[in-house]
């Protein structure tokens, strides 16, 4: 029983990295921008967060540095894509390539560094509840922050006026422009916010999760986060669930192995991607569903006249 509670706790923790990055990409994509640079942003942020953590001894500073790094890189991407009308996919890929290269380059001397003793958290009282205490209430604050962020983003998108504008821009930038909204600046704000969240995810990975810095350490989490936003049909709540599900698949795979169950791990690993394709096909086949889910201008350039 205890082992399942621990497994649940580990799943929440594993899902948090994906949830943070997924929420960031959600904001990007809600505004119509696909950010294929997520992997590169996360790597740069993981490096920046770790290095800052080493120098300042503060995890918080590490997170801030990671977030800031993510925001700066995303702003570069945003400027190229939104103002200079560069191709979104090519720019994103360039960012991924550059990020993985530059973080390796700059981070080389930090691979031998280490952070101080890692903090241990539990919520007083609640953590004493049998099973649930272990499963839910002994997590790093970032785990709860991710949940809170999902709630805030959901509220923002569906209950606030600015959220409505953001979604309108993602649906149809031309009419939002015609209504007098500064489409480009709002898109840039969305991209920067999203980048900051991806950065936070990267910093959480290197500062708390593994906790170490080595080049290439994000190992594809950025790409899974991209899958996740689609899998979650661009809804914050579903991103959270999907993140735990994707995180859970990996944990389940290891748990089963430890129990001596033999299944080719490759099939479990490809499951999140197949599930994403399945969801995409399901929502796409019906024009009403796709309209209700996918931001219509996703990946399309917006070119105001004049």
């Amino acid at each position: 029983m205890e082992s399942w509670a621990l497994q649940a706790a580990a799943t929440l923790n594993a899902g948090t990295v994906l949830a943070l990055a997924g929420l960031g990409l959600l904001i990007n994509e809600r505004a119509g921008i696909v950010n294929l640079g997520a992997e590169g942003i996360m790597l740069m942020a993981a490096f920046a967060g770790f290095a800052t953590g080493v120098h300042t001894g503060s995890d918080l500073m590490g997170f801030l540095a990671g977030g800031a790094m993510g925001a700066v890189l995303a702003a570069t991407l945003g400027y190229l894509v939104i103002w200079l009308n560069a191709n979104q996919y090519a720019t994103g890929l360039a960012l991924s390539l550059f990020g993985s290269g530059f973080s390796a380059f700059a981070g080389i001397k930090y691979t031998q560094e280490k952070l101080g003793p890692r903090p241990h958290f539990e919520i007083p009282g609640l953590s004493k509840i049998p099973f649930l205490g272990t499963a839910l209430f002994k997590q790093h604050p970032m785990v709860y922050l991710a949940i809170a962020l999902a709630v805030v983003i959901a509220w923002f998108l569906y209950r606030s006026r600015s959220g409505l504008v953001l979604r309108a821009i993602g649906e149809n930038p031309e009419s939002a422009h015609a209504l007098g909204y500064p489409v480009r600046r709002i898109r840039l704000a969305a991209v920067v916010t999203g980048g900051a969240l991806c950065g936070l995810a990267g910093a959480y990975l290197s500062v708390i999760y593994t906790p170490l810095w080595v080049e290439g350490m994000v190992s594809g989490k950025g790409w899974i986060a991209l899958a996740l936003t689609t899998f979650a049909t661009w809804r914050p709540g579903r991103i959270l669930l999907g993140a735990y599900l994707f995180g859970g698949v990996t944990m389940l795979q290891f748990h089963l192995q430890g129990q001596g169950v033999q299944i080719p791990s490759q099939f479990l690993t490809m499951l999140p991607y197949l599930a994403t394709i399945a969801v995409l096909v399901l929502i796409s086949r019906n024009p009403a569903w796709i309209r209700a889910n996918m931001p219509a201008s996703l990946g399309k350039a917006f070119f105001p006249e004049g």
């Binding site: 590169g40 570069t76 190229l80 200079l84 009308n85 560069a86 191709n87 090519a90 720019t91 890929l93 360039a94 960012l95 991924s96 390539l97 550059f98 990020g99 993985s100 290269g101 530059f102 390796a104 380059f105 080389i108 080049e215």
Partner: peptide
Amino acid sequence: PKAMTSVFQGLLLFTLLGCDTLIL
């Protein structure tokens, strides 16, 4: 360090995408 390769490749594309604005 070998990471120079991807730094250069990424940079080239970045700058190209930027310069392309000057076409239009």
